[in-house]
Computed example of a mutant assay.
Amino acid sequence: MQYAGLNGQIEVVGDALIIRRTGMVARMGGTAGPDRRIPLPAISGVGFKDATRLVNGHIQLGLGGRPIRELGSQATGDPDTVVFTHKARDQFHQLHKWLQSVVELNLRAGIDPSAVAYGQGESRLDRLEQKRQQLDDRLEQKKQELDEKDQHHRAQQAERMTGPDGRRDVQDAVARMGWKLGGGREIKNLGAHLYDTETVQLIAQGTYSDDQGIIVLTDTRLLFLFHGIVRQRKEDFPLRSISSVQSKTGMITGELQIFSSGNTAKISGVVKDDLEKIAEAIRQQIAHGSPSPPATTAASAPDITDQLRKLAELYEAGILTEAEFTAKKQELLGRM
């Protein structure tokens, strides 16, 4: 027995239904394809909408225990549904009653429709969903690749700025910087201004009293460093002496105000993301207390004196320039 619909036909052959999709409606609905063979024990329900002279009807198969779906205007694109016209309504009324009897027989026989294999059909919406999922997967994979490249690029930038033998904490802080153009000379020379026992947490670029350099937050202090070709500048703000900080941001950059020992210092031109990170980190350390910077012991003084002597010898031998000699001498004197 055959039942001809608008977007396909149903034929009963032995203990199975054959759904054939032919014609322009099937092609437009996205259901055109090879014949589907559906064993009768796989039918677990049947939905029916009658046809009128103005509106087409449809018959919908519930397969494998799946519920009957609400189709609305999408009936022609559903792989388990055949649309019919008012002219064929009597035939499809008969098919509907017969399919209801098949469902009842399956229930009385204790058949589990979900255990019966049947030809799966894909609607146009199913295929679109698959394509969307594939696109999402590709986009996620591309995002992961870009993230890995970005991390690798940041690591390379950090190594170029700090050198292959640079401190790991400095390299990690450089990799976290939001803005990296400039500041390279200061970062390369940063290691000479750090205590062995302190750890760098964040680095950003900023301007302090017309000197454009870097601000460095460690676990003991906030350090501003400017390292020009002929002139250097270093300012220390021990965290234990900072009472509070304020941050003011514009569209891109902002200003950090440091209140320390009754004085106020302003560092401007700090990229907004870096500024907020540093300001919040300082507030956290102030709130929880910060360790004191390492004290200079009596045993270390002779060592610095010896370094000064060796530094003078290098300068007299012409190995160091006057600018390099002056910068290193000021640093050593600052440690005494």
Rank of each mutant, 00 (worst) to 15 (best):
R89D: 00
Q94C: 03
Q94A: 06
Q94E: 05
K97D: 12
L99H: 02
S101H: 10
L105Y: 04
R108S: 12
A109T: 08
G110T: 04
I111T: 10
D112L: 10
S114W: 12
Y118I: 01
G119D: 06
G119M: 09
G121H: 08
S123E: 05
R127H: 06
L128M: 07
Q134I: 06
D137F: 00
L139S: 09
L139K: 13
L139I: 10
E140A: 12
K142M: 02
K142L: 05
K143R: 14
K143S: 09
K143P: 07
E148I: 08
Q151K: 03
A155M: 03
A155G: 05
A155L: 03
R160K: 06
G163N: 03
D165Q: 01
R168Y: 11
D172S: 13
D172P: 12
D172H: 13
A173C: 00
R176F: 11
W179S: 08
L181M: 09
L181F: 11
L181A: 11
G182H: 06
G183N: 11
G184I: 08
R185E: 14
E186S: 11
E186Y: 11
G191M: 00
L194C: 00
Y195F: 14
Y195C: 10
E198D: 08
V200F: 12
A204W: 12
G206D: 05
T207F: 08
S209L: 15
D211F: 11
T218N: 02
D219P: 12
D219W: 15
T220W: 05
T220H: 02
L222Q: 04
F224M: 00
G228W: 14
V230P: 08
R233N: 15
K234R: 15
E235T: 10
